[in-house]
Design a protein around this nucleic acid. Structure first.
Lengths: 207, 207
DNA sequence: CCCTGTGAATATTTTCACAGCT
DNA sequence: AGCTGTGAAAATATTCACAGGG
């Protein structure tokens, strides 16, 4: 077992999905080759990734699907529910809030924050949209461990400071600016403009 | 000038944003060190990235901001408008459609497709939501070059086949399954569940 | 003197290839 | 025979370090 690779978690999430599909199809064992064929990867990579996290297969047979799913679920934290706070009840926030996929994976919105007085007090699926000044209470009362920032620009950093002060350590941000956070706080970014710019870059190349 | 790096485009998009900020602040020249301080990167990386695309700075001074922005805009295809088709007029599709940031960067929605008869015929900002069977015509008539797939699961691959048949080569997909596309077609994925799973993985680790 | 441009060195990630278990 | 587990090799990516230009 050597050191864990920066991209390994990303791939393990993909393996986990493939394995759940296999489980639905009542497949007992799966080989690294079968996984790699789906992902168009090198099978040695899959074996190495799994060895990083101390998972053993059966030589000549492959990996036991049920056991592997359960180990990966536990590694990825998918065997419990996580309470999520949404910051920003705009179009994007609404799309995230009402997207059904999250709850199935173990992520449940328990609080919604917005600074628009026209929205504060309204309810989404029974959850009252609250003002920014309630962040700390809401996080405590709802045992929030993940915050999603879906505010377009400007105020992101100020909100993040409040979140961190209230004990949040995991943030998913849709704001394009890099956020300043202390060590131990994990931020992931979804940058929609960046994705489109990647595409237009390709288009420009060709001309 | 050596070969271009897989991550270079991603970084160049970030440089471009920093440079535009500098331009707004009327800064004439910027050094690799100044850029790297903002991104917390190695300055040699910035110089190397820029050299990959044949950009020259002035020794002792840095890079001319205006000239650099213009070169990067042109490389990234941000100096023209691109017509975009949205597939899926649900919550997420709506959030993307009504997000103002895209048009500013040169991406304009010109067609919206959905298969829900309750939505077909309705207008969003003057654009009529059309049935899937109009995809090919809409792409031709509106000179669409980028498609955004915002349908939750299932039908993504079928739609992609139609898009490719109609000449689309650049796709941004919010559907979590890997899409099967021929060489020359560029697909980027935004996988929201994957981002959350990354966060919950961190949370699990610690326990 | 300060910063660029870039070969060379280092670090990281992926792939190969094969011994060993079932 | 077939597939795992893993050192070793190869490929990629990043950083160093310094010659040379303004």
């Amino acid at each position: 077992m050597s050191t864990i690779n920066r991209n390994t978690i990303h791939r393990i999430i993909m393996y986990n999905r493939i394995l759940k599909e296999a489980q639905r199809n009542k497949i007992d064992f799966i080989t690294s080759k079968e996984i790699s064929d789906i992902l168009i990867k090198n099978p040695a990579q899959i074996r190495k990734d799994l060895s990083y996290i101390n998972i053993k297969g059966k030589p000549g047979v492959g990996y036991n699907v049920i056991s592997l799913v359960s180990k990966l679920d536990s590694l990825l934290g998918l065997n419990k529910m996580w309470n999520v706070m949404l910051i920003g009840a705009g179009n994007l926030g609404g799309a995230l809030f009402f997207y059904h996929g999250f709850k199935r994976e173990g992520f449940e919105f328990k609080a919604v924050i917005d600074n628009d007085s026209g929205k504060i007090g309204k309810k989404w699926n029974g959850i009252v949209i609250s003002s920014v000044k309630n962040i700390k209470n809401k996080i405590r009362d709802n045992k929030i461990s993940i915050a999603i920032i879906a505010i377009p620009r400007d105020a992101a950093q100020k909100i993040v400071d409040k979140l961190i002060d209230a004990g949040i350590r995991e943030i998913l941000s849709f704001a394009p600016e890099p956020l300043n956070v202390p060590a131990g706080v994990n931020v992931r970014y979804v940058d929609l403009a960046l994705e489109l710019e990647n595409l237009s870059c390709h288009l420009s190349y060709k001309k």
